[in-house]
Every structure is written in structure tokens, then in C-alpha cells.
Amino acid sequence: MIHKYTMNGFYIVLDVHSGSVSVVDQAAYRLLDYLSAPMEPACPQELLDKLSGEFPKEDLISAYEELYALYDQGLLFSEDDYAQFADKMVQSPVKAMCLHIAHDCNLRCKYCFASTGEYGGGRKLMTFETGRRAIDFLIEHSGSRRNLELDFFGGEPLMNFEVVKQIVAYAREQEKLHGKNFRFTITTNGMLLTEDKMDFINQEMSNVVLSLDGRKEINDFFRPCVNGTGSYDIIVPKFQELVKRRGGDQYYVRGTFTHKNLDFADDVFHFYDDLGFDQISIEPVVTDESKDYGLTMEDIPAIAAEYERLAKKLIQYRKEGKFFNFFHFMIDLDQGPCAIKRLRGCGCGNEYVAITPDGDIYPCHQFVGMEEWKMGSLYDGSFDLQKKEYFAHANIYGKEDCQKCWAKFYCSGGCNANNLQYAGSVLKSYQLGCELEKKRLECAIMIKAALAAAEEEAE
């Protein structure tokens, strides 16, 4: 299977099952309209006849020879022999955990999937006892895995920061005893940040996610304080200080775009040009289409055009020596993770679980509050291995739409929770999410092509 597309003047070909990416000229691009495996060593005469009105014959012959060379190396029309790995998708050790340290929040974001922090179950904070049990559970179920990850999530984690500190101290103690390596992350709206908290976060958290939606009018419309006033002016100086103290690395300023700001590239530029942030993520809202800010399939052309505008600007900036990272345009074409990881994706419900303030276990933070998906409890020792098995098989070869999709090794089957909520099943695809993911991948690959061309020009 190949995927070919044009963007920004580039003709791009991805060989799906090898991961090989090529920029081709128009003759090769047109030839590919008629080619599939198995390829003959010489260009078929009927193909030369068919395209001879568009390209000189010698160009077609030499372009075909180059395409055949790729095919011969297994880098074009390579076979899909990954299903064998899908059969190995069995239960894995648990190695990552989302700790819902607070089911409470001091903002009232309009699009919050967590019902303004309480996940439909009332406002509550996690105790250290629950946190301690969570660490013990993770270590106990981690098998031979050395690298363990713990994300402090909410709600707003800073509303329960003393317990965060206690849990980190306990985990640091335990990692030495068990030969583990904990990586902590935290996601915060920044309202309660103080210099002390910044310093603790910067010392202990390997990554920090700072929630902000972009331009002041956008942020303050969607992310008001409890009293209805805007949060932008309170948060921005704190985030700037935290990033400065952090050395400007290992963080994301992360916002949400909705139907109300389909010009979201301007929010990215605001982060970089006006606020000085260079690690940026602005992501599509995932919500019911009936909401006036919800995204629908009709929005896709506008969003796709905006992603392209952002990609072109990112290229222009890089050429000018200005650098910002956009989370969804980051792609590693030089190998990246192994095929098994690509099949498995986020590992929700199998390698990764979420823990509520009550000590209940869920497949991931997006499932919290859906009682039928609860997997167990830290307090009665239950852990539903049947559900774990179900998620172990929810890989891209267990999802019909994904098997035949060109983006499968970069998207890994999408978000199970979104699939469930908006397509009706973990094993089906949330179409809107798929279309946006594919567009972002096309942009990400095009950026690589453009920067490679610019580098070549400079030489």
C-alpha cells in the first residue's frame, strides 16, 4: 500500500508498510497512478503509450527504473506482514498511570470533558493513602519494565499539591528498592502556581503541560474562572516564569481549538511571537457535534487549510532561523518506535491505567466516570483481567477501518475513548479525528520534505 499526495508544490509518496518516504517528480507521480505490486523490471509499453502525451518517453523510462529500484529494495508496495505481530498482542505489564489527584478545578472551561473537573462524580481530592496504593499497584503490575510513568492529572492537580509532593517522595523511595525509574509529568491550568511549586515541578517533572488556549479573547471565552472572569492575565505571567526557570525545555503550552476559532494558527503564532513559548500544542476539541463550538465533518476543509497555513509558516520560520515545535507536526521518519509499539498505540487499559481519587481503576483518564468500564479498585484488590485482555487486542489489526488506512503506523488506531464515544465502539474509528490526524501527518511529512529541499539548496 502506498499513499501519495501533493502539497505546497511537493509530490510525496509514503510506502506504508516500510515507512519509506520519497519526494518524486511529476512523471514518477503519474506513473504511480497505474502501478501496483508485482512490478515488472521494465516499464510496460501500454503505460508508455498512455503517458507519452504528458512526458517524454525517456523520462518515463528512467522514472520507472527508479521506482522499480525502490520496489526491488522493499521500499515501494512493500507487503503487509504485520498481522503476525497483532497475534502477539497479549496482556502486557502496566507501566504508565494517570493519577487523578484532584476531581476539582478552579476554572470552568466550557468544553471540559471532565465536567469541570469532577467527572460526574462530585468534587474530591485524592488522599496520600490512595496515592501510595497506586504506586504499589504500578510497581507490582510492572513486571520487568524499568521505566514507569506517572502523570498527575485532574481536575487541577495544584489544588492537591501537598499530596503530589508526598506521592513523588514515596515513589522515589520505592524506585530504589525495586530497580525502577519513575518519570513524572503534570498537567496544570497554572492558576495556583507559586515560585515554590514551579521549582518542585521543574525538579521532579520530566514534562509539564500548561493549559492555555491562545489569544486572550479565545482563552477567556472558553476558560473562565469560577466567578466568570477571564484567566489569561493571571496565568500567562506564571507560565512564562515557569518556562524560564525550566530552561525553556520539556514543556508544552497546550490549547484547544473549536468551531469558534478555526483560525487557530493565529493562536499558535500568538504563543510564539507574542508570548515567547516555543513548545506548542493546539488541538481540536472533542465534543458532541450539537454544541455550538463542536467540530463537524463540514469544518474539515477549513481546518485542513489552516493546518497547511501553519505548516507553511513553520517552514518559513525555520528558514529564518526561528524555531517552534508544534506537537502534531512532530514526526520521526528515521525509524521511530518498533512495529509492535506502532500496532499497540497508547496501551490504554493494558499498559496504561487511570486511578480516581477513590482508588478506582479505569482504562484511561477519558474513561473515568463510565462505570461500565471500571476495571477494579485499589481498596479491594480487584483488577479485571478480561477487560485488560480486551484492550490488549484493540490494536490496529483489531480495527477494520485501521487495517486498510495509510496512516495506521503513525496514528496507531486513534483514541479508544473517542472511538467509543463518537463511533460507538473502541474497535471503530472516530471519523472526524481520523481525517484531522491524516491531514496533520501529511503536513508533518511535507515539512520534512520542504526543510530537506531548503537544506539542499543551501549547500
Binding site: 512523471a27 521506482l67 507501566k95 518506535p337 509492535i340 509499539k341 498505540g345 497508547c346 508533518a444
Partner: peptide
């Protein structure tokens, strides 16, 4: 190669960071 420029040159240990495009 006159017509084609290839931009780049596809386990299971589970040690990589929780996420893929890693």
C-alpha cells in the same frame, strides 16, 4: 536519482515512553 529523492532510510520491550509518530 533524477526523479526520486527518498527522505529517510519499519520490538515490543515496552520501555518507551507512554504515548507514536516517539
Amino acid at each position: 536519482m533524477k526523479h526520486i529523492k527518498t527522505l529517510n532510510k519499519l520490538g515490543g520491550c515496552g520501555e518507551c515512553q507512554a504515548s507514536v509518530a516517539q
